[in-house]
Design a binder for these strands. Structure first.
Lengths: 144, 144
DNA sequence: TTGACGGACGATAATAATTATCGTTCAATA
DNA sequence: TATTGAACGATAATTATTATCGTCCGTCAA
């Protein structure tokens, strides 16, 4: 489960971030966990290896990892409660650059809802699809 | 844009909630808005019609509407920051009863990613699918 | 109509999650 | 190895949300 230090150093270099002891332990800890842990959960686990670490460091580096593509977060949506005003069946386009969320009709997306019962017995009510990518505005900015 | 009071009363009855003036104005206001407003946004708008309304009432009733199915929220997992520990391409099963989130492999879901460029010029990086429904455990509880 | 009851409201205190600040320490590199 | 900016740790501050609690309003029985 241990990752060689120089492998992690390379990984950091590839993603353009500095390598520190805290970051290495944090990353290794994440890889050893299951499911969708909260920063607090991760903090508790990392403390076993680096007792002096601060919760703020965990937050800062999770965000750093996410921003630099080392790590992914469960949902790219707003951190706050948002309500749908669009009554029609639709999905979301989310720009990974500016985080803007735009609605797209189910038909326009070319998405056909799959089965209504999955292998494990999960009963499907509906599908919510997030299309993550770059919006036209941000594409234009990038080429400039 | 106005909704007759007795139509809203019927709607409330159908969903098993009491009808009040604040709820009616809140609901009408939501229907008149676009995009994905925050409770604060909605509060500001509702205040124009009901100046004495409290932000807490807006929160309470948005949740009531969501729970009773009158309204939908943008993301089922907003709330707190969660990180993915699963490196493989996967999607999420979300139980609308107990809110548990389970990973499901893209293949197992039977989902075929669509086009990589959408009509409006949006450049697709990846698709994130949330399957919302009832997990086997909660189905068992319901039949009991 | 009146009186009682329960649920909804408004004001605001409390909590939870996250971010900002700031002095100290560490990692990259010349 | 000395320099220098970035990262760290402690903790204060902020933001979003929820809980509390006294009051008010609508409904129903007398």
């Amino acid at each position: 489960m241990e990752m060689a230090t120089d492998i992690f150093r390379d990984l950091c270099q590839k993603h353009g971030i500095a390598m520190t002891h805290q970051r290495q332990v944090l990353f290794e800890t994440l890889q050893s966990m299951y499911g969708h842990p909260s920063p607090e959960d991760v903090y508790v686990r990392v403390k076993e290896k680096v007792p002096a670490i601060s919760l703020a460091t965990v937050y800062k580096n999770i965000h750093l990892f996410v921003d630099s593509g080392l790590l992914r977060e469960v949902s790219v949506h707003h951190g706050t409660l948002r309500v749908e005003t669009n009554q029609h069946p639709h999905h979301h386009l989310i720009c990974s650059e500016c985080n803007q969320i735009t609605d797209i009709d189910q038909g326009e997306l070319g998405f056909t809802p799959g089965r209504t019962k999955l292998a494990n017995g999960f009963k499907v009510e509906r599908y919510a699809v997030d299309v993550i990518g770059i919006c036209p505005q941000c594409q234009a900015k990038q080429t400039n």
